[in-house]
Design a binder for these strands. Structure first.
Lengths: 189, 189
DNA sequence: CGCGACGTTGATTTGCCTCAACGATTGTGG
DNA sequence: CCACAATCGTTGAGGCAAATCAACGTCGCG
């Protein structure tokens, strides 16, 4: 059940069998159905979630009343509101399942205990965060360096399967333009 | 000399005197003059740099031949190309001093050794990366939710001193619009 | 079958860019 | 110490990419 997570961790740090057991003990599987929420605005984010199957999205309602998708969580990504999780302040995000999903969750307190028992996990999460940070940086660059159409084509080229999997209006929201515009791009060829 | 860094680390993790000494031994101060480069495209990024004084910028030349500033490094921020540093691949960024600056540098190998000797530092860098990640996320949200003019006003409100310290064209580049447009905004009131 | 969610298409509007010319300030060599 | 160049900022005219507004298809599901 927690195999996909263990496999993922071992790509970054080696784990002994006892350590593996500690990790397995600290986390717990969460099944979530399409359109269900893991987090809603006003709530305090209680844990971090590893996506082992399915697609999650993190979004908020902007000042024009529209959903704005800030990130997707797909297989082998962690998804949470790190800010709310860390500070204990209420979140302003929704985290929702786009498809039925299987997650592996760890609560803030269980994570803190695990980090003490298995310090290597600090390293794992450091490397994960570093990857997430550089990916986000690159995303900012795409936002500025590419036209909306190019950004779509690049993204579609990088994740061809994913683009099919989600509704167009979500993709448009993530890429930063309107569903109408996406429809026009697609019409062009 | 390395005091500002030690102070910064202690805000996130406690350090014993021996650990403090290990940190001090691993890093080395770097003075850099205005307009000098720490990194240029094609080079492999060799270290991570903590800014104890001055301002650094990280940018690249986009496909229209313009400088695009991806991040600033100000007092108490680390600046580097994490991607090049981690993978050993050539960078496509410039890292340059905007003002004369004092940095505290640590090479990749010294960092790896330090992380083994003082595992707490894994935690420190994890927390730093997490902060950097959430800041970058929020920046993406501002890019999408706010008009260019609002984004400028919010930023100027958040960092009033900083806005005075750097040339306008750099601020415009960081915020994602042209120097002309910034000039027009300022003219308005 | 009918309703709601999602996608398409066209007309009009707008925020910001581009291009261009012209100040102001700083720095450098004669 | 002045002259002249760079560098940086201002201002205006015209253009364009994408948003907004609106109306109309289409599919899936209770």
């Amino acid at each position: 059940m927690t195999d996909s997570l263990i496999t993922h961790i071992k790509k970054f740090v080696p784990l002994t069998d006892t350590e593996t057991a500690e990790v397995a003990k600290a986390v717990k599987p969460v099944a979530i159905k399409r359109k269900q929420f893991l987090l809603q605005p006003g709530e305090i984010c209680r844990g971090n979630y590893f996506v082992s199957k399915g697609v999650m999205r993190l979004y908020f309602i902007n000042k024009n009343g529209q959903e704005q998708i800030t990130m997707f969580g797909i297989e082998n990504w962690w998804i949470t509101d790190y800010d709310s999780l860390e500070t204990g302040k209420p979140s302003h995000y929704y985290i929702q399942a786009v498809e039925d999903a299987e997650l592996i969750g760890i609560s803030k307190t269980d994570l803190e205990e695990l980090l003490i028992k298995v310090p290597k996990m600090e390293r794992y999460f450091r490397l994960i965060m570093q990857k997430a940070f550089t990916a986000t940086m690159r995303r900012i660059e795409y936002f500025r360096d590419q036209s909306d159409e190019e950004r779509y084509r690049i993204f579609a080229g990088m994740f061809p399967g994913f683009v099919q999997r989600i509704p167009q209006y979500m993709l448009a929201s993530y890429l930063g333009f309107t569903p109408q515009f996406l429809s026009k791009i697609r019409g062009k060829k």
